[in-house]
C-alpha cells in the first residue's frame, strides 16, 4: 500500500485526537515545530522528550506507533545528506541536531496528517485565515499527487508485465519513462479538473461537516502548546 493511502486511512480514524478541531491540532503542531527548530543544546534529550510527547498523543488516539516511526524515517535520507556535510565541516553536534530535529519534526507533522483528513486540514487552515490561494494549491497538489502515484504504478506494472523493472532501466530510458509519467499525469489532471468544473467548481471546495471549535479543542490547544513551550524552556 502506498504511504499516502496508509496515512489517509489513519486520518479516517475516530480516536480522541481525530475528533478535535483541526485548527487546535495545527496550532499545537506549529508551536511544537517552532520549539523543535529553535533547539540549540541537549539535542538528543530534548528531541527524545518531544518524540515521547508525540508518541503519547499518537497512542492515545490509536495510531500505530511503529508505523508512525517508520513513516517519519522517510525524511532521514535527506537529513543525513545535509548532516554529513555539516559533520565534515567539523560540527558533529550540529549534524546530530539536524538529524534528530528533522526526524521528530516529521513525526509531529505525521501526528497532524494522521489524525486529520486533508479536507478537514484545509478547513482548519481556513479557520486560521490561511490565504485561499495557498489552500487551493494544497488541495490540487494533494489530489494530483495521488494521480501521479497511480500513473507511476500503472507504468511500473506495464513494464513488469513485459519482464522489466524500474531498476533495470538505463538512465536514458528512466528519463523517457519519467517524461511519459508526467505527460500521462498531466492528461489525468486535466480530466479531473474538467470533471470538477463540469460540476460547478469555481475555486472553493466546501465540506459537508465544517468543524465547530469547542471548549475541549481550546483546552487541548492551550494544554499541549504549554507542554511544548515548557519542554523548550527546560532545555534552554
Amino acid at each position: 500500500m502506498h504511504q499516502h493511502a496508509r496515512i489517509e486511512r489513519w486520518a479516517r480514524g475516530t480516536g480522541r485526537l481525530h475528533r478535535l478541531h483541526p485548527a487546535a491540532k495545527i496550532v499545537f503542531v506549529l508551536v511544537t515545530l517552532i520549539a523543535i527548530s529553535s533547539l540549540r543544546q541537549h539535542a538528543v534529550a530534548a528531541c527524545g522528550s518531544y518524540l515521547a510527547l508525540i508518541l503519547l498523543l499518537a497512542a492515545a488516539t490509536g495510531l500505530p506507533l511503529a508505523g508512525l516511526l517508520k513513516a517519519a524515517a522517510t525524511v532521514l535520507p535527506f537529513a543525513f545528506s545535509f548532516a554529513l556535510i555539516t559533520w565534515f565541516a567539523g560540527q558533529g553536534e550540529r549534524a546530530m541536531l539536524l538529524v534528530t530535529r528533522s526526524y521528530v519534526s516529521a513525526a509531529a507533522a505525521l501526528l497532524l496528517v494522521g489524525t486529520t483528513p486533508m479536507p478537514a486540514l484545509i478547513g482548519g487552515l481556513e479557520t486560521l485565515r490561511a490565504p485561499k490561494f495557498l489552500l487551493l494549491v494544497m488541495q490540487f497538489l494533494y489530489r494530483y499527487l495521488v494521480v501521479l502515484f497511480e500513473e507511476a504504478g500503472a507504468i511500473r506494472d506495464a513494464g513488469a508485465s513485459r519482464g522489466g523493472s524500474l531498476r533495470s532501466l538505463q538512465l536514458r530510458q528512466a528519463g523517457a519513462a519519467a517524461g511519459v509519467l508526467f505527460a500521462r499525469a498531466y492528461q489525468r489532471a486535466n480530466a479531473i479538473h474538467q470533471a470538477m468544473v463540469a460540476r460547478g467548481f469555481e475555486g472553493t471546495i466546501r465540506s459537508l461537516s465544517p468543524p465547530v471549535f469547542r471548549w475541549q479543542d481550546g483546552l487541548f490547544m492551550t494544554l499541549f502548546c504549554g507542554v511544548s513551550v515548557a519542554l523548550r524552556v527546560a532545555f534552554q
Binding site: 486533508m118 479531473i192 470533471a195 470538477m196 460540476r199 460547478g200 469555481e202 472553493t204 466546501r206
Partner: peptide
C-alpha cells in the same frame, strides 16, 4: 476515476450541490 475526487462517496456526491 477522473470524476470522483473527494475523500468519501458522500462528500463526492455532495460536491455539486455545495459548489
Amino acid at each position: 476515476d477522473n470524476q470522483l475526487f473527494m475523500p468519501t462517496v458522500l462528500e463526492d456526491v455532495a460536491f455539486g450541490p455545495l459548489a
